Amino acid sequence: MRTPVGITVAVLMALGAAQAFAPRATPPLAATRLAVDRMQLNTLVASKAGLVTGGELGNLLYSTDQGKDWTRAKVSNDRQALINQISFAPDGLHGMAVGHEGWILRTTDGGLSWKEIAFEEKNGEPLMSVARLPSGAWIAVGAFGKALRSDDEGAHWTPLALPASVEDKHMNRIVGSSDGQRWLIVGERGLVLHSGDAGQSWSLIDPFYNGSLYNALALPDGGWLAYGMRGNIFQSSGDLGPWSRSEMPVQASFYSHAVTPDGKIILVGQGSVMATSSDGGRHFTLSRAKGRTSLTDLLLLPGGQGWLSSDAGLQAFSATATAPPALPTPAPQPSATPSSGAAQ
């Protein structure tokens, strides 16, 4: 009796072992969705591959369906440093992303994948802006007067020659004209640098404001719009001024802009405030996007639709929708701004 029982037990154990080690199909994982409506995202651009955004914890994302779905890009090194700006060459494939700790990444496929080319793990200064010059060189600027130039697609970076008066001022944005011949760099304490030779040399514009400027826009008439803290917007009729203050009915800080096909200028900033000008930036009317966030960038798509990025994620935007009524009271000041400077 013992022999049949022993054989039966042995057979059952063998079958159990075979079942345990037998190959089996893995059930599909549930689809996950990136929480782009809850991330801090600082920059939003279009490339040949689609839409590309970046921000907190080194997140670099792309969408190939006009923002409906987002995918995390492949990044060679996970640094979790804040991404501040993404910029692409005219071909829409070659681009650079810059961020904190002197982080620089390069893409050659429109933002689907990124390779780290610079990172300063100890005492690295934030890089705030990056741009490609008509010569093919890339320049990047950031905190404490840091300014770099690369003539070999980012493989090597050397100091960018700037006037000594820049000192240790934070530089927030590099902006070029549509023909690529005229450029501005704007920053804290009213810093404005100008180049009239496609970014090869830079000169200091006499200060016309003592606070931080966060961005600028080249106007069709050859002038500029520069803007920043507490609703301070300035316009010039030429490269070197004079500069005059625009009419802005709210003391909100503004960080980015877009221009509609019919020439309207839209600024976005703190407190979900949006400011629109139909007269070249001399006067602005106000509306507000959803929530009470700091709007960091906006991207208009064909047909007047687009997206807004913010410290609370992405939201859809329509330039053709009826604007909300004007804001009745000034928006509160943010507890922190993209760079420091004298508050004016």
Rank of each mutant, 00 (worst) to 15 (best):
M1F: 06
T3G: 10
T8C: 15
V9C: 14
L12T: 04
L15C: 13
A17L: 11
A17V: 02
A20N: 07
F21W: 05
A22R: 15
R24G: 08
T26G: 12
L29D: 15
A31S: 07
Q40L: 14
V45I: 08
S47W: 03
G54A: 14
L60I: 12
T64L: 11
T64N: 10
T64G: 05
Q66A: 08
K68E: 11
D69V: 13
R72Y: 07
K74P: 08
V75K: 11
N77G: 09
R79T: 09
I86M: 10
L93E: 02
V98N: 00
E101Y: 11
E101H: 14
I104T: 00
T108S: 09
T108K: 03
E121Q: 11
E125A: 14
L133W: 03
P134W: 05
S135E: 12
G136S: 10
W138Q: 05
I139R: 09
V141H: 13
V141G: 03
G142I: 15
A143P: 00
A143E: 12
L148G: 01
S150R: 04
D152I: 12
E153G: 09
W157Q: 11
P163K: 06
A164R: 13
A164D: 05
D168W: 13
H170W: 05
V175F: 06
V175K: 15
G176C: 07
S178Q: 13
Q181C: 10
R182F: 02
I185E: 05
V186F: 03
E188L: 02
G190K: 00
V192A: 12
G196R: 01
A198V: 08
G199N: 02
G199D: 02
S201G: 07
L204H: 14
P207I: 01
N210K: 14
L213H: 00
L217Q: 03
D221E: 06
G223H: 02
W224E: 01
W224R: 06
L225H: 07
R230C: 05
R230L: 12
R230K: 14
G231P: 00
N232K: 03
P242S: 00
S246F: 01
M248G: 10
F254R: 04
Y255T: 06
H257C: 06
H257F: 05
A258R: 05
T260N: 13
I265M: 11
G269E: 04
S272C: 07
T276W: 04
T276Y: 11
S278P: 04
G281R: 07
R282I: 00
A289M: 04
K290C: 08
T293K: 12
L295H: 08
D297V: 05
D297E: 14
L299F: 08
L308W: 01
S309T: 15
S309R: 09
L314V: 02
P324R: 07
A326G: 07
P330I: 02
P330S: 11
A331M: 12
Q333I: 06
S340W: 00
A343K: 11
